[in-house]
Amino acid sequence: MAIYAQELEDLLRASFPNAKIAVEGDDGRHMSAMIIDESFRGMNRVQQQRAVYAALKGKMDGPQGELHALALTTKAPD
């Protein structure tokens, strides 16, 4: 089962309601997302990406995950 841009954005929005979020990709398995959120302030990049993966609620877990690859850009607002 694949995951699509709107579903991915909805999952991210649930965890980062005030973030600027842009999701791209339409093959259901390989996507990119940019998330700019105040909650990332003071976190290093690994911590930011772990927060995003937690928001995905297992959609990328293991070889049977709905989403195979996600290119992430994360940061706190300027």
Rank of each mutant, 00 (worst) to 15 (best):
residue 8 L to H: 10
residue 75 K to Q: 10
residue 27 D to W: 14
residue 36 I to M: 05
residue 63 P to K: 13
residue 55 A to D: 03
residue 43 M to E: 06
residue 36 I to G: 08
residue 50 R to N: 08
residue 24 E to M: 09
residue 8 L to G: 11
residue 73 T to W: 02
residue 74 T to L: 10
residue 76 A to T: 05
residue 56 L to N: 06
residue 43 M to A: 09
residue 16 F to P: 05
residue 6 Q to S: 15
residue 73 T to C: 04
residue 49 Q to W: 03
residue 2 A to K: 14
residue 29 R to E: 13
residue 5 A to R: 15
residue 33 A to Y: 08
residue 65 G to P: 03
residue 43 M to Q: 15
residue 69 A to F: 07
residue 47 Q to K: 15
residue 36 I to A: 06
residue 31 M to N: 04
residue 25 G to V: 02
residue 74 T to P: 01
residue 12 L to F: 03
residue 46 V to K: 12
residue 16 F to C: 04
residue 70 L to C: 06
residue 15 S to H: 03
residue 34 M to W: 00
residue 4 Y to F: 15
residue 41 R to E: 12
residue 27 D to T: 08
residue 38 E to W: 05
residue 58 G to A: 14
residue 27 D to M: 14
residue 30 H to N: 11
residue 71 A to I: 06
residue 4 Y to A: 07
residue 54 A to N: 12
residue 44 N to I: 14
residue 78 D to Y: 09
residue 56 L to V: 03
residue 58 G to T: 13
residue 19 A to L: 11
residue 76 A to E: 09
residue 25 G to S: 02
residue 30 H to G: 09
residue 60 M to F: 13
residue 40 F to T: 08
residue 7 E to C: 11
residue 6 Q to C: 08
residue 63 P to F: 00
residue 59 K to S: 14
residue 42 G to W: 02
residue 65 G to F: 11
residue 58 G to H: 08
residue 21 I to K: 02
residue 12 L to P: 02
residue 54 A to Q: 01
residue 77 P to A: 02
residue 49 Q to T: 07
residue 52 V to H: 06
residue 59 K to I: 13
residue 65 G to Q: 04
residue 59 K to Q: 15
residue 67 L to I: 12
residue 35 I to Y: 01
residue 11 L to R: 15
residue 13 R to M: 04
residue 6 Q to Y: 08
residue 75 K to G: 14
residue 18 N to A: 14
residue 69 A to C: 13
residue 21 I to A: 09
residue 10 D to G: 14
residue 26 D to H: 15
residue 34 M to F: 01
residue 61 D to V: 14
residue 35 I to M: 12
residue 67 L to W: 10
residue 7 E to A: 15
residue 31 M to G: 00
residue 35 I to S: 07
residue 12 L to S: 02
residue 7 E to P: 11
residue 42 G to K: 09
